[in-house]
Design a protein around this nucleic acid. Sequence first.
DNA 1: CGCTTAATTGATCAACATCAACAGTAGTGG
DNA 2: CCACTACTGTTGATGTTGATCAATTAAGCG
Lengths: 242, 242
Amino acid sequence: METITALSHAPIRIRGVRGWPGDRGTEAPHLELAPAEKAELARLGEVVDFKTPGSLIFSQGDDAAFIHLLVDGLVRTYHTLQNGERQVVAFHWPGDLLGLAEDGRHVSSAQAIVPSRIYRFPTAKLARFLLKHPKVQDGFLVKAMHDLRAAQRQLIVMGKFDVTRRLAALLVDCSGHEHYFDPKSGVLTLPMSRDDVADYLGTSVETVIRAVTRLHREGLVERIRPRELKLDLDRLKGFAAL
Amino acid sequence: METITALSHAPIRIRGVRGWPGDRGTEAPHLELAPAEKAELARLGEVVDFKTPGSLIFSQGDDAAFIHLLVDGLVRTYHTLQNGERQVVAFHWPGDLLGLAEDGRHVSSAQAIVPSRIYRFPTAKLARFLLKHPKVQDGFLVKAMHDLRAAQRQLIVMGKFDVTRRLAALLVDCSGHEHYFDPKSGVLTLPMSRDDVADYLGTSVETVIRAVTRLHREGLVERIRPRELKLDLDRLKGFAAL
DNA sequence: CGCTTAATTGATCAACATCAACAGTAGTGG
DNA sequence: CCACTACTGTTGATGTTGATCAATTAAGCG
């Protein structure tokens, strides 16, 4: 179910764009770290493979011993409320960092949605490393602000959009990830279940389905198979624009 | 309406707690920076006074020339949608940093809710400073993660709570700020209007009011005046617990 | 092909938005 | 001090969105 690969050469890439352009015109969707820094960073951690969908990466309340960097795959982080309800806080794509902690403990749980490869860095070790490598630390700061922007954006979506638009916004987000979206055909292969979507959008499965139906009726989406949707991306973007 | 004080000695305090305890047992709600660092930081910026409620600190789409540190007062950041609707993204208390940017432009607008004093640091200058002062940069990283936790927490609230619980959660948040809450009497002096609350909770003014009524009926809150509520903090916390 | 899980559809009910009217509250000038 | 005015907050009535429960169908998979 999960395999630890001590010495491994998975490439280190962190997804995120700088909000305040420090170096001019860095339009890449990934932070640029020097090769030497990447190598050093790689030596700090180890690669873990989570082969089966649903496998638990860490759990809410766990001692936050590691900071995780998703190399490949797709991960959901979610919070379980007292009554057992689940709120998916975020979907994480390759290059995302996971493992936000409070008081030394994970605030959310994380599960692989598809088979995923993850670097994990011991927190203390990483913290010391960052203090000695300002450029890398800067990268982490940029990443944190990137994620903060994303969270605030989702807050707007949750506060002001009805479910249909929330879904549209999610589809647009997903379409930004080449692995699941073919720009030529416009076909998105949804990696997550209707349940995941519902728990992310703060609604029920049934309502998600009806939202798909509505988008279909309006011609913004064509339902090929449950997990395969042909998007009219331009119109979707317009529909879900803030 | 706004006054710039070039040389000023407002104290620098950044609100936020480290998630992964780096130094042991730092339980203070504020980051500890060395006095020398604070002094240097202070020299980078200038203090601006926003004397009248509603005065605009920066506006969505503006060139993000500054990073702002709220010294005193209360600020709302909000996003204005295409149809003119407003979503309040966050309330900012003393010690908070504001001015998240994307592509060099502010993603939200910020307004003083009560008269507020704000440090503003030129972004480029600050960015250079941070690269040379890893401890301070670390502080900013901790702050960013603190805010990210807060945003994700609010996402859970928005996704899973009905309006009454959302309101309860907000009241609990407000009660954490001494200036507006007297623990002895349990009286909270709400600094923001019902509109602000509604636009923050993603609902309407009327529904906010009915939520207050409901909390009142349940005995969790006593309505002294519109902006003065006597809280049963323990029960409120229980009611709004995640 | 059967079997399990995921997705879908329909019917009913509660939460909330919306519109309209009204009551406090605070500020201003006579 | 009162009277006038402009907000801000509150209440009531009605329609809509989405939650919930129950039943059914469609996909994936050994």
